[in-house]
Nucleic acid binder design. Structure first.
Lengths: 185, 185
DNA sequence: AGCTCGCGTTCCATCATGGAACCCAGTAGC
DNA sequence: GCTACTGGGTTCCATGATGGAACGCGAGCT
């Protein structure tokens, strides 16, 4: 009955989601990118309960997203600094930002926009392939088992269903006209 | 004591997180992009409890991410199809995928990789600005209040926050900021 | 008549959430 | 020397969410 753990699933999305599939964690990260580092700053900025904030920060430190650094000796004070593993989540936040502005803005428009620091021009994040520069869409991209995929699951049919990969799906993302569900069993 | 709602916060990230800041919702979305549409397929693929799956699907339908479509009359059967609002979350999943592969893969490598459907070449998603093609990084990008930002908060607090990562000095303009929830202070 | 499939709902023990109170070291004011 | 304040938490505990299991239900299959 415990809360399900996802961090051992053979899926990178599940592993990320195990950390980030939590509203407060993502919002704490957002504030960290805005430059907040101290406990009370985060508390005030988010209106989060101190106990929950403490638990989240502990977890994020344990997971290597943040680092707890003493910034003062007497009295001893700490701040939480972003580590590379946490900083690497920036694209996730930006993707959420873009979605929020496109699909969850009120009638008056997006509450917060992104601009280039230098030019001041609006920035709209898009996901593209590093090599080709082409947009990453469900139509163009396909998932395959990688080197870290458990062999047992590759061979074992009933378990394999749990991590259905590809090739069985006739209609990726439901983007086309094919409406029938893929034949199963 | 209720669970905090984020969908009214004047921040696009918070609004997205209100929906997506939940592990199961993201994983259901991932399966939907893999082509799964039916209740029992999702149940088997994710190993999720039927009650929880039902609640998540209801919410996702209510939020306009999925659509419940009859695919058969006698007996009546439904499937859940991705709507544009849900499909627009694909970049979020891809960003998570990339992070998971970069920062949560085991010693043997990523469990699942992305390839181009046509060329078979590996795909590595990066976030760039639509207009300039430049990578979207915290150093290059800055957040500003947009047209939908509540005036009360604008007048009340100096707009101060930006993306700050390293040892930049604390802004003397005072605490407070553009992204605080309406409830605080 | 009984079984299975597809798709849920109900029950309920345990887990997580979060408002509030409490704690503690050091510092500043009187 | 006494009091108050600040930064940074912990503890308490009433509720809400989670999730395994059992139950329901209409339609078809044997």
């Amino acid at each position: 009955m415990k809360k399900t753990r996802f961090d051992r699933w053979p899926c990178p999305v599940a592993r990320a989601v195990d950390l980030v599939g939590d509203a407060w964690t993502l919002l704490i990260l957002r504030e960290a990118f805005y430059g907040l580092r101290r406990f009370d700053q985060l508390e005030a900025a988010l209106g989060i309960g101190r106990n929950i904030l403490a638990r989240r920060l502990d977890r994020m430190v344990a997971e290597g997203l943040l680092e707890k650094v003493r910034y003062q000796e007497r009295p001893v004070r700490h701040e939480y600094q972003l580590l590379p593993r946490g900083r690497a989540l920036f694209p996730v936040l930006m993707a959420l930002h873009r979605w929020g502005n496109d699909w969850a803005a009120g009638p008056e428009g997006p509450p917060v926009t992104l601009v280039d620091r230098r030019t001041g021009q609006p920035v709209r994040p898009v996901l593209v392939d590093e090599a080709t520069g082409l947009a990453v869409t469900p139509e163009r991209v396909r998932a395959r088992p990688g080197p870290g995929f458990p062999r047992a699951l590759l061979a074992d049919q009933p378990v394999r269903r749990r991590f259905r990969l590809d090739g069985e799906s006739t209609d990726p993302a439901g983007a086309g006209g094919e409406l029938r569900p893929p034949t199963s069993r």
